[in-house]
Simulated assay, not measured.
Amino acid sequence: MIDQLPDSARRVALLLKERGHPHAVVMLPETGKTSAEAAAGLGCSIAQIAKSILFRRKEDDAPVLVIASGANRVDEAKVTARVGALARADARFVREKTGYAIGGVCPIGHAVTPVTLIDEDLLALESLWAAAGHPHAVFNLSPQELIELTGAPVVDVALRESVT
């Protein structure tokens, strides 16, 4: 099965296998570029999609990866407070720093190790789905497995609408 995956998804599948991860990479028939598309293809809630959003830290051009619930928008001010001022990461930066195309950025296996933060809202869920290196490839994991695979801290990164 691994041999039939696109190159970038095969790389993720081999990395997961090497790390003892029990779940296989799954290819969606339709793209999973957005959380809504991935959730529809998997038959799960949007919140269960662990989306990988990459920023560029202004100070040193380091990649900053935020793994957020698909139901949340990332509050850049909260991320900035933890890691420093941020800038947008264009497609070239994403590919160069992660080795993946936008829409397929996996939480692990990056070309350059990013500063990584995990959305605390993901911990309330039993099962998550994350991109596996390709816009059609995903893999299943628990919040605890996400923490173990990335070694990242769990923090509040969600934009909360204020009620006045």
Rank of each mutant, 00 (worst) to 15 (best):
M27N: 08
A111D: 02
F55H: 11
L128K: 04
R73M: 08
P135C: 02
R95N: 07
L42Q: 11
L86K: 08
N140D: 10
H134L: 02
R10C: 08
S35N: 13
R10M: 12
A89E: 03
K78N: 07
K78T: 07
L159A: 12
P63F: 09
M27T: 12
V115M: 09
N72P: 02
G43A: 09
P143D: 04
N72V: 00
Q48A: 12
S162H: 08
D7A: 15
A9T: 11
N140W: 13
F139L: 01
G103H: 06
V138Y: 07
V79F: 06
A40M: 11
Y100D: 04
E76N: 07
A24H: 14
D61F: 06
T116W: 05
R82S: 07
L65V: 01
R56H: 06
P114W: 05
H134C: 01
V64P: 01
V155L: 06
R88F: 03
P153Q: 08
V155C: 05
T98G: 04
A81E: 09
L128M: 05
V138T: 09
F93C: 04
A38M: 14
G133E: 07
T34W: 09
T116N: 03
T31E: 14
Q4D: 15
S8A: 15
D7N: 10
L159W: 15
V12S: 11
A50Q: 08
T80K: 11
L149S: 06
P29I: 09
E161P: 03
H23Q: 14
V25A: 10
P29L: 10
K33C: 11
A91H: 10
V105W: 01
P143N: 02
G20D: 05
V83P: 12
L14D: 11
P6I: 11
G32N: 09
A36K: 13
V138K: 03
H23E: 15
E18T: 11
G32R: 13
H134Y: 11
H136D: 10
R160I: 15
A62K: 10
A158P: 03
E161N: 09
S69N: 06
D7Y: 12
A50H: 06
V25H: 11
G103E: 04
G32L: 14
A68F: 07
D156P: 01
R73I: 03
V154I: 12
D61W: 04
E120K: 02
E30K: 14
G104I: 09
V163W: 12
R88V: 08
D119S: 00
V25D: 10
N72H: 13
K51R: 13
L15E: 13
V115P: 05
K51S: 10
S52C: 11
L149C: 02
S142M: 02
